[in-house]
Design a protein around this nucleic acid. Structure first.
Lengths: 214, 214
DNA sequence: ACCTGAACACCGTTCAAGT
DNA sequence: ACCTGAACACCGTTCAAGT
């Protein structure tokens, strides 16, 4: 017997095992042992399905952080946990386009983020903006590095070679610092971006909570 | 007579006028007055085409900033200019997945960003990471808000209504601050994120250039 | 050597026809 | 009332056949 949950589960399995292009209505029906047309009884369209699957994935990717952390450590913990989940399920990252923003689990994520930033001392508007910027950084950093594995020395080497072969007149920095730049993987980029963003938020928190500023 | 440039131009036109789903090999061939198969003479696959188009779009989106700006003002200028370009060509944002990273124009963008951050005082590794984080924020902020126009009062109102109707037990902040949170559009989110990120980078710049730290 | 019509193996979606 | 086979209107890609 067909249910929305069963459809979402099978879709996630197809995604993980065979990638985004395998998440078709035909293969979904085959995996569930029903006809393609039956799927449309539970889902308006493939687009709607991807929104449901994305929201479901967000539920799976959100893990409660250990208690007792300050706002910054907790933000780091949540950000790293969700990023790790996406790295484990790379095709899921391709589904996250903002369209799933209003799903129940996404809303739960916004609630948690906004609550913590308000707790830290930000205004509701700033808290919402900070939560959005953080989510953008997490999801974007996975999405924009999906097919680049900088930990693979072969790929790193290939990038370095490409940079070194550029015209030193038009790309002096790339040529000069080819090894350094090629060596910056998505982990390092993410951790640096996270630190910068949270440093900036810390500045905002201080100026919001500093009695001299009020 | 068919050329890669003509193909990329027509693809961009299709994207702008009719969206991503219109960028098909068939419609491309029709627009160019050639057969579908001819396209494969210039392009290995549709995937390769999207990479070429993405890189071409990056060229169009990069405008030289006015001279004389300090590193931070220049970063803001470049970020806003590229974001404005993407908002003008929303479907282009859907193409940017990191796969285009090694195209000639993307490499030019990395060169410029890295050069400025090194000029500000960051190490090459940090400069590369900062450039990557900034690009992620710009592109992600457009991508994750593509179908949400928060300046549209109807949509803002709908979001507020949705937040207000949530269970106050599980979503206290969303209910309590529904108006505030619904009112934060992608512009505000982007500007806040940009400020936070650059504040954080400013901290790194100070600690890298401060003689006491060396 | 260059080009392409037609075909192949897929898609998402619909709907008349079945039970 | 519920389900689905078959069809429709598309895809990307290939390749034998033409010039």
């Amino acid at each position: 017997m067909l249910s929305l949950e069963a459809i979402a589960d099978t879709a996630l399995r197809l995604l993980d095992e065979h990638g985004l292009e395998a998440m078709t209505m035909r293969r979904l029906a085959e995996g569930l042992g029903c006809s393609q047309s039956s799927l449309y009884r539970h889902v308006r369209s493939r687009d709607e399905l991807t929104i449901i699957v994305a929201d479901q994935a967000i539920r799976l990717g959100m893990r409660p952080p250990p208690p007792g952390l300050d706002w910054r450590s907790e933000a780091e913990w949540l950000a790293r946990a969700f990023r790790a989940f996406l790295l484990d399920h790379p095709s899921v990252a391709l589904l996250l386009r903002g369209t799933e923003r209003l799903g129940p689990n996404s809303l739960q994520g916004v609630e948690v983020s906004v609550d913590r930033f308000i707790g830290a001392g930000l205004s509701p508007r700033h808290a919402a903006a900070a939560a959005g910027a953080l989510a953008t950084l997490i999801i974007g950093s996975v999405q924009f590095n999906l097919y680049l594995d900088a930990t693979d020395p072969g790929e790193q080497q290939a990038r370095r070679a490409l940079y070194e072969r550029l015209d030193p007149h038009t790309h002096p920095r790339m040529v000069q610092h080819a090894t350094d730049i090629a060596g910056v993987g998505s982990d390092e980029e993410f951790e640096f971006g996270l630190r910068m963003l949270l440093d900036g938020i810390a500045v905002a928190v201080r100026s919001a909570t500093d009695p001299l500023e009020r």
